[in-house]
């Protein structure tokens, strides 16, 4: 719990909240109205089986495409965060390479239904069994657990936006050239998040719960990298020729 920096006024925090929330809403892939209209239809058993009977490489490719689509929205989100584009190009790339998938996992709670333990994927709601063909049951189950636990916090869009920005602006990423600049941005974002949580009269524990989520996100992403390496070792040509180029750039 750092003391608020004397250089950040309440007006500045309010402005930051506005900018980051607007950026989030403009780039969140699915609008709240669309989410409400989306039929909460789960895949039928025959559809689940059809995903499960896909060759492992086809399922990996499908998921790589979906992740890449989601990441493109995160890149747009980053570009609209106040101060992000003022960072040097090296640091913009470092932050997105390390943090874009983490933000995709954070955003997943918007399209996750805790009751049925399913996530919006490829047109309907999918439970963990849909992803069996990937051969990464443990990772999938951790991703679902993470989404469920994010949902249980019932974050508002403002809070989600600020937490996403906080994750993206992590100043402890390796290879940053202007660490101090990133640290300043992250600290301001954290103050804005605290400000919003206070304004929304959230209980004190939410911020510390969110801090725990940061380490959970890192673990999910490093396990994704491990699973990809294992997959690539068996199917190097599939990754090389069929995976989206942006996915390969980020995780290769």
């Amino acid at each position: 719990n750092r003391d608020p920096s004397p250089t950040v006024s309440l007006a500045e925090l309010d402005h930051l909240v506005q900018i980051i929330s607007k950026s989030h809403l403009e780039t969140c892939q699915y609008l709240r109205e669309e989410l409400q209209q989306m039929s909460r239809q789960n895949f039928q058993q025959d559809e689940v089986e059809s995903y499960q009977s896909k060759p492992r490489e086809a399922m990996w490719q499908l998921c790589a495409v979906k992740i890449t689509e989601a990441i493109q929205y995160v890149v747009e989100f980053a570009k609209r965060i106040d101060g992000f584009m003022d960072l040097c190009q090296n640091d913009q790339i470092v932050l997105l390479k390390a943090g874009s998938l983490e933000v995709v996992f954070v955003r997943m709670c918007r399209v996750f239904d805790s009751q049925s333990n399913s996530v919006y994927f490829d047109g309907k709601f999918a439970g963990p069994d849909v992803f069996k063909g990937l051969g990464c049951d443990d990772l999938i189950s951790s991703v679902f657990d993470f989404a469920k636990s994010m949902c249980s916090l019932h974050l508002t869009e403002d809070e989600l936006a600020l937490f996403s920005a906080f994750v993206l602006l992590s100043a402890d990423r390796s290879w940053l050239q202007e660490k101090l600049q990133v640290e300043k941005l992250q600290q301001k974002t954290q103050l804005a998040l605290q400000h919003v949580l206070q304004k929304n009269q959230r209980e004190h524990g939410v911020l510390s719960k969110l801090r725990c989520k940061v380490s959970a996100l890192r673990s999910l992403c490093s396990r994704h990298t491990e699973k990809l390496s294992a997959f690539r070792a068996v199917y190097p040509d599939i990754v090389q020729t069929h995976f989206p180029p942006l996915y390969k750039e980020l995780f290769g």
Partner: peptide, 17 residues
């Protein structure tokens, strides 16, 4: 890093719509 991340760099360069 920029050289190894041409697509990401390009996405960052594209103006926001």
């Amino acid at each position: 890093l920029k050289e190894k991340h041409k697509i990401l760099h390009q996405l960052l360069q594209n103006s926001t719509s």
